[in-house]
Design a protein around this nucleic acid. Structure first.
Lengths: 132, 132
DNA sequence: ATTGCACACGTTATAGCATAACGCAATTGA
DNA sequence: TCAATTGCGTTATGCTATAACGTGTGCAAT
């Protein structure tokens, strides 16, 4: 799937996420966009819904936040399962992919005849700098 | 770590989770315990906090819910990373462990000098029965 | 061209999830 | 006894997410 032209709101939300150091909550995004006319959470959530669908933004379930995909210009959906390491001190997020992990998980679900739709892998802890 | 004697509230919350068919939200638990004197969310959250610490209950981050550990009487913390398959239709949860997945993830974090604290693996989709 | 549809958008209201801050009671151990 | 810890109850509040309604715009089919 190729990413269609973003609408105004979608672009605004995406730009905020791209310029951010780390993941942002929907309400933080809202606050950052008040000067651009944003007034209600739904404006953010609707934009995020599309950006997630296009694969250019990821949702971090364990911290209720959103982050721009680390592969600019690329369809992230094609990379298989996305995994994240989230530093609980500085908030930085590292995104990575491991086909062997994907393979093992998909083997397991196949054995259970489970039909996967969306998989979340999130490792919370301390990054090198913060652990020191 | 061995599980200490549960307090009254902890037991009530744990019993509700154990008897449930699937995961429950904190507020659902609260409702089920109103007859037992529960009045406020904190009573549930405080009990859950301890039960999570003891490893007898798991939190499902992607659906803001809680489920009793599938290994009764056993310390689940010793099983390595816990993974879940969650049916989005019937709500049933399958818990499993895969040491190879653990290994790959831990290899990756080691390479990044990232210090993991808590890892979440959740696969949402359709169970065999619901996919049919 | 007009009708019908899909889609993005704006607004208000509400639902659902989680914790802060206070105080009380029971337990334990120095 | 005194201090520290732990569990508990209550009130209030904050954060996260969606329902329901209506508006406007662009575009395709007739």
């Amino acid at each position: 799937m190729t990413t269609p032209q973003l609408t105004k709101n979608q672009s605004l939300v995406f730009d905020v996420l791209e310029k951010a150091e780390g993941p942002l909550s929907a309400y933080t995004i809202l606050d950052k966009l008040r000067d651009h006319g944003f007034r209600a959470p739904l404006q953010v959530y609707r934009a995020l819904e599309k950006l997630l669908e296009y694969g250019v933004v990821h949702r971090l379930e364990s911290i209720n936040s959103f982050v721009a995909c680390a592969h600019p210009g690329d369809d992230c959906h094609s990379h298989g399962i996305v995994a994240f390491a989230i530093c609980e001190s500085c908030g930085q997020v590292m995104e990575f992919h491991d086909h062997e992990v994907d393979h093992r998980l998909m083997e397991w679900v196949r054995g259970q005849k489970f039909k996967p739709e969306k998989t979340t892998i999130e490792i919370r802890g301390l990054c090198e700098a913060c652990a020191a």
